[in-house]
């Protein structure tokens, strides 16, 4: 079953003795449902990774970093997990995130999606969906609302959208909230 897009799965392992980009490794690319599941079954669950590691799933041709021309004007919907949620929720939420991307759950707004990242961190893990244009309010909000629904988050819970340009300057201002 062909996917709308070819996707690249990346792995980042923090090694401070090397420059950031040398710690980023392409695992594989796939463009069918079957190859997605084959990849998924052969890699470690996110919750089993060590702190400082990331997985990133991006459309083929987009590097999983702010500096990429398709990312630099964009931003991310950010889901921050409490420490105790690594074992109860992280793997399910990351799988739901990937299914939203490869299944094009955001319909025509899916073209705004660049990728998604899961960060494994001691202080609390994070999952984010990256979109290409932070000023495209209609798409950003649609993606955020659908994403939150697919994650099964409580209506009382909120997730925030941050522009990469703000994150890069260490600001954590939410541009949008759903």
């Amino acid at each position: 079953h062909p996917l709308q897009n070819r996707w690249a799965l990346w792995f980042f392992k923090n090694d401070s003795s090397r420059v950031w980009q040398d710690n980023l490794h392409l695992i594989t690319k796939f463009d069918t449902v079957e190859d997605f599941w084959s990849t998924y079954s052969h890699i470690q669950q996110a919750s089993k990774l060590s702190s400082g590691c990331d997985y990133a799933l991006f459309k083929d041709g987009i590097q999983p970093m702010w500096e990429d021309s398709r990312n630099k004007r964009g931003g991310r919907w950010l889901v921050s997990l409490a420490k105790h949620q690594r074992h109860s929720k992280l793997d399910r939420l990351w799988l739901e995130t990937m299914l939203c991307l490869i299944g094009e759950s955001f319909e025509e707004h899916s073209r705004e999606v660049c990728g998604a990242v899961v960060n494994i961190r001691t202080k609390g893990d994070k999952i984010s969906v990256w979109t290409q244009e932070a000023e495209n309010q209609a798409s950003v909000l649609h993606i955020g609302q659908v994403y939150k629904e697919h994650l099964g988050l409580s209506t009382k819970a909120t997730i925030g959208y941050q522009a990469h340009a703000d994150t890069a300057t260490k600001s954590t201002r939410n541009k949008f909230v759903v």
């Binding site: 079953h1 062909p2 996917l3 709308q4 449902v33 079957e34 997605f36 599941w37 998924y40 739901e96 299914l99 490869i102 299944g103 094009e104 759950s105 319909e107 025509e108 899916s110 697919h150």
Partner: peptide, 18 residues
């Protein structure tokens, strides 16, 4: 062109099919 959209249920079923 037409966008290829798969819902969660379909994707999960594909996981279990041989």
């Amino acid at each position: 062109g037409t966008r290829i959209i798969y819902d969660r249920k379909f994707l999960m079923e594909c996981r279990n099919s041989p």
